[in-house]
């Protein structure tokens, strides 16, 4: 194991007492300063995996090491060094925002002026000043999630585990959170492991992604490389009238049979780089006297990647 690895998960398996085989022997590593995402449909095993990392569930088989500490045999060292925001932000319903943050600061052993300093810092970091004396149940769901993240960060953890951190946030707070997580990564070198249902989040935020389905990792790489596995760009041409047999043959001759697919209202051409070749392609098509109503370039998205590996559309989830 290299020193650079903050998380090492080896042959990890989880069978619940109910018999559900939620995680079926997965392997991955997360390097220092990485934002590692887990993408997968409902019930894929994301929460189960994260909770085993966070010492909340027993491990059925396999090993997890966090910062060189074994999660099972050295759990107290793991707890000192991680921050974990669970999927359901459950916070003390009998306390105010400020009291809760102060309590978490004390839990990690800070005393005296350091408590006030960290509470202050935490309120600022997540823009919570205006709520500081409010009771927690009075806060909106989104604000509670931000508070949950705030208390998960009070001790400057080396690893942050976030189970669907932006579910329930409005778009503005969601992109604020992305900015914050990137800042934590670049300025403090915090490593982040998160699960998400949002394709855009996975794409813009994560350095690497694991796509999980039915307890197994079906693909794992950078978002860019995952998209490459889908193949070429496609240019879609909308038609005024459907193509004639001759036109289809001409198209297949020109671009190769495997790169053409057509139906009554449009056809697509697969090319290496859609934006670069759009004009040239269009010229050829006009010369063939095909009447084109409109055109657009389709690049493989994570959604396509997701569809390829899980057989499900991601957009349906969120």
């Amino acid at each position: 194991m290299s020193e650079n690895n903050i998380v090492v998960v080896k042959d990890l398996e989880k069978k619940y007492k109910s018999g559900t085989h939620a995680v079926k022997g997965i392997n991955f590593e997360v390097k220092k300063g990485e934002i590692f995402g887990m993408l997968g449909p409902n019930g894929a095993g994301k929460t189960t995996t994260l909770q085993m990392m966070g010492t909340l569930l027993n491990i059925t088989n396999g090993k997890i090491k966090i910062l060189e500490y074994d999660v099972e045999s050295d759990s107290s060292n793991v707890r000192e060094n991680i921050g974990f925001a669970l999927q359901e932000a459950g916070l003390d319903s009998l306390s105010t925002v400020k009291e809760l943050i102060a309590f978490h600061v004390k839990l990690f052993g800070f005393r005296g002026v350091e408590i006030d300093r960290r509470v202050e810092q935490s309120l600022s970091l997540l823009d919570l000043h205006q709520y500081s004396d409010q009771m927690i149940p009075e806060l909106s769901g989104g604000t509670q999630r931000r508070l949950d993240l705030a208390v998960s960060l009070v001790h400057d953890p080396k690893l942050l585990i976030l189970d669907e951190p932006t579910t329930g946030l409005d778009p503005a707070h969601r992109s604020d959170l992305w900015t914050l997580l990137k800042k934590l990564k670049t300025e403090k070198g915090i490593t982040i492991v998160l699960s998400t249902h949002y394709m855009e989040e996975a794409d813009v935020l994560c350095d690497r992604l694991a796509i999980i389905d039915s307890g197994e990792i079906v693909a794992m790489d950078t978002p860019q490389k995952l998209k490459k596995t889908i193949g070429k760009d496609r240019i879609e041409f909308k038609l005024f009238e459907s193509l004639s047999e001759e036109q289809i043959i001409a198209l297949k001759d020109e671009f190769g049979e495997e790169n053409i697919s057509a139906n009554d209202s449009f056809f697509t051409v697969r090319v290496d780089d859609g934006e670069e070749t759009l004009l040239d392609t269009l010229k050829i098509i006009i010369q063939m006297e095909i009447k084109v109503k409109g055109t657009k370039v389709l690049r493989p998205s994570l959604d396509d990647v997701y569809l390829k590996y899980t057989g499900k559309r991601l957009e349906e989830l969120s």
Partner: peptide, 21 residues
Amino acid sequence: AALLVDLNTGYFDKLRATPAS
């Protein structure tokens, strides 16, 4: 009673991942 409040909000579990374990 107070323990049930923590158990039902999920805060008890949140604390299990901290030194409060």
